[in-house]
Design a protein around this nucleic acid. Structure first.
Lengths: 231, 231
DNA sequence: AAACCCGATTGACCCAGGTCAAATTTGACG
DNA sequence: CGTCAAATTTGACCTGGGTCAATCGGGTTT
C-alpha cells in the first residue's frame, strides 16, 4: 500500500488545484518530503469516522465516497472526493466521516504532526486550507437543500449536472458523464433508495433526456435535465 | 440600526467562545476599533444569499436563522446561529445563504477589508476561524444524515436534543428547551412540513416524552427522546 | 457454453408524510 | 374586553417514494 517516494510535487497532476497550489517552488521541495504516495484498491477504506485523525490525504487519482453510518446501518454519503480534494481537514480530534476508495485510488498522505508544523509558519497554506473548507461548507449547504427540499427527479437531475460539472476540472467537459459509483452510492448520496434512482434514470431515458451507457450516462438533452434540476 | 461603539471587547459576553477567543489583551484593544455593534429586530434580514460579502458578523445576543431558497420559494434552513457564532466566513465572493433575526439580535459587525488586513499578520486568528469552519462542516454533515436518512420522529427528537445541547453554552443545562423559532422554521430546518412537526410534537406529548409549554418544550422523559433520536 | 454471481431493473403494493381544509389558540391593538 | 390576523393544531385524504419480490443482464469461473 505504501511505496517509496519516487515522485516530484512539481510534476503532480493536481499541482494547480490542490492545497499545494499555495506553495512556491522552494516550499514545494520541502513539502515533497512530508508526503508519501499511497494506493488503495476498490472498496478499501482509507479512514473511518471514529478514527482519531493522524493523517491528511491529498487525492491524486480516482474517486472516493465519504459517508456516515447510523447505528442501524443506514448510510448517508456526504460527498464524493475527486483528484485535488484534501481530506481529513480536522486539525485535531477525529475524522467525522469515513472514506472508501471507489475503484483504484492514489493519494498523497501526510502525517498530522509534521504537516501541522509545516503549516505553522506558512499562513498562506493555512489560508488555502481555509478556502477549501469554506468551499466545502458551501457545497454542504447546497446539498442540504437538495436533501431536505427536492423531489426524487430534481435530486437525480441535480446530481447528474453537478457531477458533470465537477468532472470538468479532471476530464474536461463532455456530455458523456462517467458514473464510477454504484446505484446504491448514488441513492445514499441523494437520500433515496436504489430502486428510485434506477426508476428515475429509466424515466429520464424514456423521455429522451439521457441515455444510460456502460459505466455512466450520456446527456442527450442537457436543457431538459437542467429544467428538471432548476424547478 | 448602528450605534456608536460604547463598549469593550474585554467585557463581551462571547469573549471566551467567539473568534476573539484567540486574541490576547493587546490585540483585543486594537480589534475593538474594527467592529461596530449593530441591532436587528424580529424578522429583519441581516444579509442575503446573493449579496457580495462586505461584512462579517459576530453574533452577541439573540438567534438567527440561516437559510437558502429555491427559485419557487421552497426554503431550507441550513442552521440556527447563537451568540458566539461567526457569520459570513466567505473571505471573498458572496454569502451563500441568507440570515434573518429571530427576535431581537445584537451583533458585532466587521467590514471585510480592515478585518482581512487584521487577520493577515495574525495566523492564530485565521486558525481560530478555520477551527470554526471545520466545526460547522462537521455539523453540516451530521445534518445531511438527518435530512437524508432519518424519519420524521427521529428528526424532531434529534433536533430537540441538539438544540438543548447548543443552548447549554448560552443558558446552561435545563430540561426546559426554549424554541424561539416558529414551527415553520423547524419544519424548514428538518425537511418536513409544519403539519408534520406539529403532529410529532403532539405525539411526543401524548406519550409523555415532552410537554409543550409556552415558547418551547419541556423534556419530561429525556431517555425516551434520546432513544427516538438514536434509532 | 453452462452455471453462477451480483448489480441493476422492473413490477405490485403500501405507508409515512405531504396536501388541503377546517378549527382552535395566541397575540397585538383599539 | 372585543376584534382581527397570524400561528398552530387537528382531521381527512392522497401520493411520492419506500418495500418486497422477481427478473434481467454482463462478467467470471469451470
Amino acid at each position: 500500500m505504501i511505496e517509496p517516494n519516487g515522485h516530484f510535487c512539481s510534476d503532480c497532476a493536481v499541482r494547480g488545484t490542490a492545497v499545494c497550489a499555495s506553495l512556491d517552488p522552494a516550499e514545494l521541495r520541502e513539502f515533497e518530503h512530508l508526503g508519501r504516495r499511497v494506493h488503495f484498491s476498490t472498496g478499501e477504506t482509507v479512514f473511518s469516522e471514529e478514527d482519531i485523525t493522524t493523517s491528511f490525504f491529498n487525492l491524486l487519482e480516482g474517486v472516493m465516497r465519504l459517508y456516515k453510518l447510523l447505528p442501524d446501518g443506514r448510510r448517508q454519503i456526504v460527498g464524493f472526493a475527486l483528484p485535488g480534494d484534501f481530506l481529513g481537514m480536522n486539525m485535531s480530534g477525529r475524522h467525522n466521516f469515513s472514506a472508501d476508495a471507489i475503484g483504484a485510488v492514489t493519494a498523497c498522505q501526510f502525517a498530522k504532526v509534521p504537516f501541522g508544523r509545516f503549516i505553522e509558519d506558512r499562513p498562506h497554506l493555512l489560508q488555502r486550507i481555509n478556502e477549501l473548507a469554506i468551499r466545502e461548507l458551501s457545497q454542504a449547504r447546497d446539498h442540504m437543500v437538495l436533501l431536505g427540499r427536492r423531489s426524487a427527479d430534481e435530486k437525480v437531475a441535480t446530481f447528474l449536472l453537478g457531477w458533470r460539472e465537477r468532472l470538468v476540472s479532471v476530464k474536461g467537459s463532455s456530455n458523456i458523464v462517467p458514473l464510477p459509483m454504484s446505484r446504491q452510492d448514488i441513492a445514499d448520496y441523494l437520500g433515496l433508495t436504489i430502486e428510485t434512482v434506477s426508476r428515475t434514470f429509466t424515466k429520464l431515458e424514456r423521455h429522451g433526456a439521457i441515455e444510460i451507457v456502460h459505466g455512466g450516462i450520456c446527456l442527450r438533452d442537457p436543457a431538459r435535465v437542467e429544467a428538471l434540476a432548476a424547478a
